[in-house]
């Protein structure tokens, strides 16, 4: 678990603007790192450190949207706020569809810019926590053996030990042993909690669970 301060990563090819915006952010109390191109940023960015990205939409080389796509592929996608010199509706729509936290003109009011940065940092924290929880949960379930998973599937359906034993062709006592192992490994007290946790982890659903987006 990282304990570093959240950092605002500013990506813009215009060094003059890059310097100005980083000054403003630093003066407003944020930790700032500047990159003059999207490739630079992707090369240096540490996926485990919290923060957000403030990127120019129109850059030579890798464009803002490509950066957005590349970020989404990483383990811990940082929220991205787009800045543009001259905004138009189609690109703003595209940015928001791609999951951008915000889309602002370079000359947008200061408060709007700072708000957007704060919001995306909060979003990052929140997403990061939920992802950590999820990962932890999955790790617990991964500890279960194949037989234990089979028994679990029956248990969350509300079936009795006797029925489970009949279905799986094992002794009722063995089922009880498996249940004890399951509750120990998953650190739960009751069947109700077991069922809630199973749902949360997205076990036994048709598709693999997706990580929740947004708050």
């Amino acid at each position: 678990m990282s304990v570093t301060n959240p950092t605002v990563h500013v990506v813009d090819d215009d060094t003059s603007f890059l310097a100005a915006i980083s000054r403003l952010l630093r003066a407003s109390g944020f930790a700032v790192k500047t990159f003059s191109s999207a490739n630079d940023f992707l090369a240096q960015c540490d996926a485990d450190s919290p923060g957000c990205v403030l990127a120019d939409l129109q850059m030579p080389g890798m464009k803002g949207f490509d950066l957005q796509l590349a970020l989404a592929q990483t383990r811990n996608p940082l929220p991205i706020v787009f800045l543009t010199g001259h905004g138009d509706i189609p690109s703003s729509v595209r940015a928001m569809r791609g999951g951008a936290a915000d889309f602002l003109e370079k000359r947008a009011p200061k408060d709007k810019v700072l708000d957007a940065v704060k919001r995306s940092l909060a979003r990052d924290t929140c997403e990061r926590e939920s992802r950590t929880r999820q990962r932890d949960l999955r790790a617990r379930f991964d500890a279960l053996s194949k037989r234990e998973l089979e028994v679990l599937a029956h248990v969350v359906q509300g079936r009795l030990n006797k029925q489970i034993a009949g279905d799986l062709g094992i002794h009722e006592r063995t089922v009880k042993l498996h249940r004890t192992a399951i509750t120990t490994k998953l650190r739960v007290q009751s069947v109700a909690e077991l069922t809630r946790l199973t749902l949360q982890a997205g076990m036994f659903t048709a598709s693999r669970p997706t990580f929740p987006k947004g708050q």
Binding site: A20, L24, H86
Partner: peptide
């Protein structure tokens, strides 16, 4: 807008 944006942010 690039230089104007930079001026604005610097001033702020």
């Amino acid at each position: 807008n690039q230089p104007l944006g930079a001026i604005l942010r610097n001033a702020e």
